[in-house]
Computed example of a mutant assay.
Amino acid sequence: MVLRPPSGGEFRFDPGALWLDLLVSGGPGELAGFETLHTPADLAAWTKLSRLRLDPARVHVTAAELAAAVRLRDRLWELAWALIRGGPVGPELAAVVDEAAAGPPPAPRLRVTGHGFRREWTLPVTGTQLLSAVARDVIDVLTGPYADRLRECGGVRCGLVFLDTSRPGSRRWCSMERCGNRSKVRALRERRAPDAG
């Protein structure tokens, strides 16, 4: 994903999972300032940016489905924070995920390419199918090999959340070109500060 923060500029960010793609669209509390899901068309547009890579014109979202998506996303933030910070995960959070996952997800399609195969999705897709795909991804991630690799960016006042799928499991930044570089510059300044006197 290419993110354009309110402070300006842009950078590439790979959250590592579909459900974490959704978290980039905004959230509760202080994250409300980053809200991007204002209309059903906004949720349809998000699908093109997400790892689903859908054609927004073929994604049909109702106002009720948009409201359900925002509610699910905000609860997924609670889940992510609990997992990252070692807090308790209540059964009500699992119930929210289970409810969304119970619906039918988008149906995959096999496409033959010149070099093999590619997965695509049967269109059109509804908002309910999107929520099912997101919720099923939560279940896959939290019961899979990277279940303990949910991370919050180590950048000052960043807060982006990602799944660390690196081989050593040592990813620290949302993006090296943003928070990684800022941290290196800050560390260099701190090392040089005593020499300046």
Score class of each variant (00 low, 15 high):
Asp140Ala: 13
Val125Ser: 12
His115Pro: 01
Arg149Phe: 11
Gly159Ile: 02
Val134Ile: 15
Gln129Leu: 07
Gln129Cys: 05
Ala107Pro: 04
Leu131Arg: 15
Val161Pro: 04
Val125Phe: 11
Ala135Gly: 09
Leu123Ala: 03
Asp137Trp: 06
Gly86Asn: 02
Cys158Phe: 12
Asp137Met: 11
Leu110Ser: 14
Gln129Met: 13
Ile139Glu: 12
Cys158Lys: 14
Pro106Met: 07
Arg149Val: 09
Gly114Asp: 13
Ala107Lys: 08
Ala100Tyr: 13
Ala95Cys: 05
Asp140Arg: 15
Leu163Ser: 13
Leu130Arg: 01
Ile84Asn: 13
Tyr146Gly: 11
Thr113Gln: 04
Glu92Thr: 11
Ile84Cys: 09
Leu93Cys: 00
Leu83Ala: 09
Cys158Gly: 15
Gly116Leu: 03
Glu99Gln: 09
Gly116Ala: 05
Glu152Val: 01
Arg85Cys: 14
Val89Leu: 08
Gly87Val: 08
Thr122Met: 01
Gly144Val: 03
Leu163Arg: 04
Asp137Gln: 05
Pro108Ile: 10
Asp148Arg: 15
Pro91Cys: 02
Gly87Arg: 05
Pro104Lys: 06
Arg157Tyr: 09
His115Gln: 05
Gly144Ser: 13
Ala101Glu: 02
Glu92Tyr: 05
Val112Lys: 07
Gly154Lys: 07
Tyr146Asn: 12
Thr128Cys: 05
Pro105Arg: 04
Gly103Ala: 14
Asp137His: 10
Val125Tyr: 07
Val97Tyr: 08
Ile84Pro: 15
Leu123Gln: 11
Trp121Thr: 09
Gly127Gln: 03
Arg85Leu: 13
Gly114Lys: 06
Gly154Tyr: 10
Val89Arg: 03
Thr128Met: 04
Arg136Cys: 05
Arg157Thr: 02
Thr126Asn: 12
Leu83Asp: 13
Pro104Ile: 04
Leu131Phe: 14
Glu120Ala: 12
Gly90Trp: 01
Gly154Arg: 12
Arg157Ile: 03
Phe162Val: 00
Gly144Glu: 05
Pro104Arg: 14
Leu160Gly: 00
Ala100Leu: 09
Tyr146Phe: 14
Asp164Arg: 11
Gly116Trp: 10
Val156Met: 08
Arg157Gly: 11
Cys153Asp: 13
Leu163Tyr: 10
Val138Asn: 01
Asp140Ile: 02
Leu160Thr: 00
Val161Cys: 11
Ala107Ser: 12
Leu83Glu: 06
Gly116Lys: 10
Pro88Asp: 06
Val97Ile: 08
Thr128Gly: 08
Arg109Lys: 06
Asp140Lys: 10
Leu110Asp: 13
Gly90Pro: 01
Gly144His: 12
Asp140Phe: 12
Leu150Gln: 13
Leu150Tyr: 08
Arg149Asn: 13
Leu160Pro: 00
Leu93Ala: 01
Arg136Thr: 05
